[in-house]
Design a protein around this nucleic acid. Structure first.
Lengths: 210, 210
DNA sequence: TTTTTTTTCAAACATATGTTTTAATTGAAC
DNA sequence: GTTCAATTAAAACATATGTTTGAAAAAAAA
């Protein structure tokens, strides 16, 4: 049929399984089985399992990064136009909000965000390198804006605080939607807006700490 | 020789490789090769690869948790004796400090801490479940103390803020000692004391946010 | 329709995996 | 020194893996 359907089906299935079982613990047979396509289709359409992983990231990360980059540019431009420094909260929000909101952006997006949350600390170089390659430019951009926002903070300190913030975000992403056993009295909200608000509160406070 | 050496060698090697390549991406042959013991030794001494993972966690986590538990009890007791509420910083410090300090506690400890940092968000159930089983009681204990320290905070809010803090810590652990490409002007300190101080600053600020 | 290209499919390939087996070796108890 | 249990060792097992092959089917081009 030559449907573009096949490639999409493989991407969806891989995204689903990579997010849940990890890259190395997911076989091509599981992926193609779930996608109801032939085993050889992966190597035919993508070349290799690793290239498939790359494609899974690329499909979502390119548009997501476009939003994040544009948001950050708006923050920078607005501040410049108004003759002031960029704010810490608006800078972090420009980066964090689209990331968490992406979860609602369509079928499979939730899987992908889980994948992203875990990719940062993935033990495997294959996964982490692919991810870092995509995320690094945005990270530097955010770092630069925060340097302007917090000029009194040393670069080292800012670097680590930003790492802490990224870590908090990644972990929040992984936890959201999961049903772990919870302490008594806790009925965790998992709607994106509340979670984003809480996370922003937390990281802004940490970032601005005197 | 019946040396207890063999089991230890296997544990060291597994710890090293699990931390660097992940559980599923590490073969028993790689482990036994590195440990210079026979392949069958793993199944003989531990029963299975999964049981080996369990043993790797257990060897380090039992003593580490003992320290963390004792620290938390001291915080709680001291506050009670002095007729005041436990402090946010001392509570978080009781948990975080031994974790990061553990890194220096001996050969292989660094590998293990890396493993821990990643276990929290490991895509694989095998790894995450083993880890959660060991960490959950401590997490609840810390949660309870922080409830006393921050009585005005809703349980939900506290739960998430603690998750953010845990995420920041886990990510910091993963990053420490790694040589990623860094923004200009950043020469990241990686000595444990500075990192602990920065992390505590960050999470205390986030936790106490009005 | 015929030809040509693209895509699908089943099968095979080569290798890697965790585990088990069986025999050799070791170390201590008698 | 002999016996016996614990440990090590080499090999085999069964299965799972990513990838490749070559023919069939489908789609597109002529």
């Amino acid at each position: 049929m030559s449907l573009p359907e096949t490639k999409e089906r493989i991407l969806d299935s891989a995204e689903y399984l990579f997010a849940r079982k990890g890259f190395h613990n997911t076989s091509l047979r599981a992926i193609t089985g779930r996608a109801a396509v032939n085993l050889a289709a992966v190597n035919y359409h993508f070349g290799s399992k690793e290239a498939l992983l790359e494609a899974v990231f690329e499909r979502r990360l390119v548009p997501l990064n476009k939003v994040r980059r544009k948001n950050l540019e708006v923050v920078r431009e607005t501040a410049r136009r108004e003759g002031r420094l960029p704010g810490v909260e608006e800078s972090l929000r420009a980066f964090i909000e689209p990331t968490l909101a992406f979860r609602k952006s369509g079928t499979g997006a939730e899987d992908f965000i889980t994948l992203v949350g875990r990719a940062m600390s993935d033990p495997d170089d294959t996964v982490r390198n692919v991810f870092i390659r995509h995320i690094a430019p945005l990270f530097y951009m955010l770092f630069d804006i925060l340097r302007e926002a917090l000029p009194e903070l040393s670069p080292d300190m800012l670097f680590w605080r930003l790492q802490f913030a990224i870590g908090a975000m990644g972990h929040a992403i992984c936890m959201a939607g999961k049903s772990y056993s919870l302490p008594e009295g806790v009925t965790p909200v998992s709607d994106v807006e509340s979670l984003t608000a809480m996370l922003l509160d937390f990281v802004v406070a940490g970032m601005e700490r005197a």
